[in-house]
Design a protein around this nucleic acid. Structure first.
Lengths: 224, 224
DNA sequence: AAAGGTCTGTGACGAACGTCACACAAAGTG
DNA sequence: CACTTTGTGTGACGTTCGTCACAGACCTTT
């Protein structure tokens, strides 16, 4: 039930011995929904890996609006910078659901990355992947209108959690409208409006905790 | 005059011997202003390091509008992903000025990163820095209005190239309005308008190829 | 100097979308 | 079960900003 270290992408390919020595550096901690793991701008004294639940990393504007940079699920780690002199956190981390995480102190983390070239390479790959998805987010927020961003979001979610049921794809959305809005960079109301526009166009159906994609191809057409 | 390998951040801290063996992998190439180094989506067969000039990495929307993700100057490298299975370029690279670059083939690059743990660590740091600045760009484009983005851009440029002349800060802008617009995610005309608004507010002066910041503190106040 | 490009300012206009307002549904809590 | 809290839909409204249009300004090239 609990996540094994072997399943953590950051530790992929390590020997049992290495995993065991890593285990000694880990400390567990649980968070309620809405609790903050760390604040943007504060000195970042430790790194964490999500064991269960979901954590969002976001930035806040002076207006109060928030933009989610990424959300982390089981196995994902907050990719702090192992070599930087300034360890200010670039974003705020908040539990979206009740969540359990492993913490690693900054010193242990640095030592870990420096001693294991395997981890260093994995980290490079993870960073590069994040860089790519950040690049996509920049493109979307800057160049695409809200409707396209929303559709893209639905299709991305669909690709992650494929629960096919016949022709239709049932999509369990573990996010509120507010959270969707924060992810695609818009306002709560706008999400609701476009969602209903898509419903009227018979492309999706809306049920309490889920969205049913009736016509995936139809949605994809709207992205062009 | 030409950039030495020692000055390339990616190769920081390497021995002469290592630098020499790297040198054998490099091939030089020059580009005219406006020439494309590689296209978004195409398979990325090689990595490059800027020797001189300036290169922009950007994404294009179907509408034709472009968003610059980053610009690279002498010493900067295009941070491709050494471990990824899919090597599709995430952006288009275009020379903003006449530019000379070193190319490294994909295979040589992968070998280089895998054999040198020093390079691997440096790459981690560079990735992390880019991740941070990408995060900032996401925040800005999504949460801040154009005026603030423009002011932030001016102040950033100022921090990079400080040419003080008495009280005022003379800022040589090597970008056209169009390029500024592409960087901060807006339209050419909007940049011109806000620039003149700032001029009317006596915060800056506009001369043919330069912008003079008359009141840095005044600009910073407008960011809050 | 004329002629052609590229870069720039400015006006006018409309669409997209953020904000405020409220009503209602759902879900937790006593 | 009331009662509060949280999430949700929808209308009305105003602002921001992207687009189209055009006129100068500047820089090359002949």
């Amino acid at each position: 039930m609990t996540l094994s270290l072997k399943e953590v992408p950051l530790f992929q390919g390590l020997s049992e011995g290495e995993l065991n020595s890593i285990k000694t550096c880990l400390r567990e901690k649980s968070f309620e929904k809405g609790e903050i793991l760390f604040y943007e701008g504060k000195c970042c004294e430790r790194v964490f890996i999500v064991q269960s639940g979901r954590v969002k990393l976001y930035r806040t504007a002076s207006s109060g609006r928030e933009q989610i940079l990424e959300t982390l699920g089981p196995g994902d780690s907050c990719a702090c910078n192992p070599g930087s002199s300034t360890w200010a956190c670039a974003s705020t981390a908040e539990a979206m659901t009740p969540a359990a995480v492993w913490f690693i102190s900054r010193n242990d983390y640095v030592r870990m990355v420096n001693t294991s070239s395997k981890i260093s390479h994995t980290l490079n790959r993870l960073f590069a992947e994040k860089l790519k998805s950040f690049g996509s987010l920049i493109e979307e927020v800057s160049l695409k209108d809200v409707k396209k961003r929303l559709i893209k979001f639905l299709l991305d979610m669909l690709a992650e959690t494929t629960h096919k049921s016949g022709e239709e794809s049932v999509l369990l959305i573990p996010f509120t409208r507010e959270e969707i809005a924060q992810r695609i960079g818009t306002a709560r109301e706008t999400v609701a409006r476009y969602l209903y526009q898509l419903k009227r166009a018979k492309l999706i159906d809306i049920k309490p905790k889920q969205i049913i994609v009736r016509n995936k191809e139809g949605l994809e057409k709207l992205l062009l």
